[in-house]
């Protein structure tokens, strides 16, 4: 059967654009997302945490904690018992991503709408990509709204506008957060293609997320110790081990995202990972990095997040193209 398909794909040219009908799909899916109860709950949840943590942060900041970069501190300042807003984001963004897509394709099968939709003059490409774009759009919309809410709260509570540096950092962080969500969106969509039951797809997505959040760090450290054993006193071997552990840990999107959050929201961070004292020669400790330098520092992370999103989406795309549509 695969050979057949390849024959068709290579030997013949399809007529028309694969994006015919894309915007109709995006508009419909977007409308579905924005009016769905699921989205309402998520929005309520995220607005609640945002206003709660940021309000707590402004209280701390007014009390005199934190120095320069007040607006960045809004994201990162924690006050007992609440963690900082970035801490919540690491949890909420995957949740939104998964919630937006875990029934994207199998939902159409279960509603028995798939064959009817694909019998319209569109390609499967348009349906899948439209669903992904709509999810990403809904995610971007929600996150942008939250960001504006936070800045608004900051203006009201702190009484000072953010400066240019801060705006660049906040926007960069927003962009990276959207793509971090994109990974989970693409993953949930992939599982919605693989599994016929939406509940299974949701559970599988959450399992992957949990694996990377809770276990990947431990596994990376164990693997590093196993592959690059460092006898006591051998500093060089130890450095190699730590570097391997870091490289392994960065396979997890959570690690990448956490590092971006750290470097973007804390201008004092000049490097991610291991730094030797020699490398710090001549640096003024604690002096902030310009925003452009921080963006540069996290550029590989952002590229990694986007690449992972594209890879996962591509895998789902191939599987969807090969799927038999009869229910």
């Amino acid at each position: 059967m695969l050979a057949q398909r390849e024959h068709v794909l290579i030997g013949q040219q399809r007529e028309g654009s694969p994006w015919t009908g894309l915007w109709a799909v995006v508009a419909k899916e977007m409308a579905d997302h924005l009016t769905s109860v699921r989205m309402l709950i998520l929005e309520a949840l995220i607005v609640l945490t945002a206003s709660g943590t940021v309000y707590a942060a402004t209280q701390s900041l007014r009390a005199g904690a934190g120095g320069s970069f007040l607006f960045l501190n809004l994201f990162t300042t924690a006050r007992e018992p609440l963690p900082a807003f970035v801490g919540f984001l690491g949890l909420l963004v995957p949740l939104i991503g998964i919630a937006l897509a875990f029934d994207a394709v199998n939902g159409e099968f279960n509603q028995r709408t798939i064959s009817k939709i694909l019998a319209q003059p569109i390609y499967r490409d348009a349906l899948l990509f439209g669903k992904f774009l709509a999810g990403l759009g809904a995610l971007a919309l929600t996150l942008s709204a939250i960001w504006l809410l936070i800045i608004g709260l900051g203006l009201l509570q702190l009484g000072a506008p953010p400066d240019g540096e801060e705006v660049v950092r906040i926007l960069w962080f927003l962009l990276v957060t959207i793509f971090y969500g994109g990974i989970w969106l693409a993953l949930a969509m992939l599982f919605s293609i693989v599994f016929r039951q939406p509940a299974t797809a949701a559970l599988a997505s959450i399992a992957v997320w949990l694996f990377f959040t809770a276990f990947w760090g431990i596994i990376a450290s164990l693997l590093a110790q196993l592959l690059r054993p460092a006898p006591p006193g051998d500093t060089l071997a130890l450095i190699e081990q730590v570097q391997l552990e870091l490289a392994l840990a960065r396979i997890s999107p959570n690690t990448l995202y956490a590092e971006v959050a750290l470097a973007t929201l804390n201008p004092a961070v000049r490097a991610l990972g291991l730094i030797l004292p020699i490398q710090l020669h001549g640096a003024v400790p604690g002096s902030p990095l310009p925003a452009a330098q921080s963006v540069l520092l996290t550029w590989p992370h952002a590229t990694g997040l986007i690449a992972a999103t594209i890879l996962i989406f591509a895998l789902g795309y191939v599987l969807f193209q090969r799927q038999e549509i009869r229910a």
């Binding site: 068709v8 013949q12 040219q13 399809r14 007529e15 015919t20 319209q120 003059p121 569109i122 390609y123």
Partner: peptide, 8 residues
């Protein structure tokens, strides 16, 4: 297989 859009 070649002209699915026109048919659909």
């Amino acid at each position: 297989t070649r002209q699915p859009l026109s048919i659909k």
